[in-house]
Design a protein around this nucleic acid. Structure first.
Ligand SMILES: [Mn+2]
Ligand SMILES: [Mn+2]
Ligand SMILES: [Mn+2]
Ligand SMILES: [Mn+2]
Lengths: 237, 237
DNA sequence: TTTAAAATTTAAGCTAACTTAAATTATATT
DNA sequence: AATATAATTTAAGTTAGCTTAAATTTTAAA
């Protein structure tokens, strides 16, 4: 009865968690397999094994569902991943596209002890450089629960702040950087062209015409920073 | 033809390197096995495999000898290990006995890219907190070549500085800390009692009577810090 | 409702990294 | 030099985590 958890298992659980919490995606073995770069057969096999370990529920041909134990593990890995990303960006100055690659490895070899030192050192951050929320040590997200939505669904005329950038490659982050599309940037929706799946926005006095391929990767919230500012003023008159 | 290097391989090569550079130790499979906590059979098996990959030379019943490629790999792992130890101690404040455990894992999952960022951040240190030398990116040690020797072989009456503490557990480092036996501490040999394997030393005005079990783990050099100071003064008049 | 396409599962097999047990070789002692 | 002891190697077997290929089931289309 080997109770040690492997890299393959951690990545599998993490992927099931992430797919399960993404809109328009499913957690069937094939989807997990594609995500991890393994075959469907391997994913099915792993699903049976993890089911036997009570880390997920598996019924043939159905979607995979994490047990609470499995979810706790997934959140543990995600916590380590995002803390490392935050660290690598803030302390070593790695760029947005570099941090993921390194964190993808480090997340599996960081003890809980070290993880808490890391979190402490960083001042217990609640989001990573991509704007992804960081669960606390017990797996709870403590992010102000402002409503978020993809920029592709934002309303014409409204103002938002960028809360997450969900792309992954260098080109994506270079483009965002170049055009001031950063976490916490303020963005105003000028025009929407639903038929052409385009959105015209204003960022730092500049107008951009963005395709849904991009706007669907950018999460925004309805001016949470101004709300925050408002709250602070009230508490601290 | 899988050219990727595994954790097992890295640990094996590192162990062969370390044993080969320790006095009174050998690099036969059994010794490596004991060090790694695996069976002799597993070590022999690994020796054959690594020999096939040209990472070491293996002749039945003889000691293992790293090839230059194998040694380069071992030094790469050692570099990562010691840089992480330095980092964990200096930046996260982990104690002497905690850093090794964490570094033992991290050393295998740190890209060369990240390693150089780590080294840069630390100011390219040449020794870790235990006083162990850190090879540079091409596997070369750049430590002033002052002669070192175990405290157990130091000369009565002479003064030395501590250059390495080679123990590993909490008790060991707690004892050293408590008695000012730290890297760079100045130490004077008052008396040697070879028959009883004891050495009486003076550290910070305090006298200590130490058994060879301890003195053989402490490496000293003949006042390298004063020599260094001397050299600096000459160069910078 | 039947059928074709797509996805999933099962079956069989591989490799790395171990294990235990038996056989072999080296080494140390008389 | 013979022999007992210790170390090493070989042999056989296990497990995790994959693979490819075949069989099965689901789903979508006709
Ligand atoms: Mn990973
Ligand atoms: Mn992230
Ligand atoms: Mn290691
Ligand atoms: Mn060290």
């Amino acid at each position: 009865m080997d109770n040690l958890i492997s890299v393959a298992t951690e990545n599998f659980l993490k992927t099931v968690y992430t797919l399960g919490n993404s809109i328009g995606k499913n957690t069937r073995p094939g989807t997990v397999a594609r995500e991890l770069g393994i075959t469907n057969a391997a994913a099915t096999d792993m699903a049976r094994k993890l089911s036997a370990k009570n880390l997920l529920d598996y019924t043939k041909y159905r979607e995979l569902k994490l047990t609470s134990e499995g979810e706790k593990m997934a959140l543990g890995v995600i916590r380590k991943h995002r803390l490392w990303e935050t660290f690598l960006h803030r302390v070593f100055g790695l760029s947005m596209h570099e941090i993921h690659r390194e964190a993808e490895q480090l997340e599996h070899f960081t003890s809980d002890f070290l993880t808490e030192r890391l979190s402490l050192f960083l001042g217990h951050p609640t989001t990573d450089p991509h704007g992804d929320p960081i669960p606390d040590a017990s797996g709870v997200f403590n992010n102000g629960n402002t409503e978020v939505l993809p920029l592709s669904q934002a309303t014409e005329g409204e103002k938002y702040t960028v809360s997450r950038l969900q792309g992954s490659d260098k080109e994506y982050f270079d483009f965002c950087q170049q055009n001031d599309l950063k976490v916490n940037s303020v963005i105003r929706i000028i025009n929407r062209y639903p038929n052409n799946r385009m959105t015209e926005v204003e960022v730092k006095k500049r107008k951009l015409l963005l395709h849904e391929d991009l706007t669907s990767t950018i999460t925004v919230s309805k001016m949470p920073s101004s709300l925050e500012f408002h709250n602070r003023k009230r508490q601290n008159p």
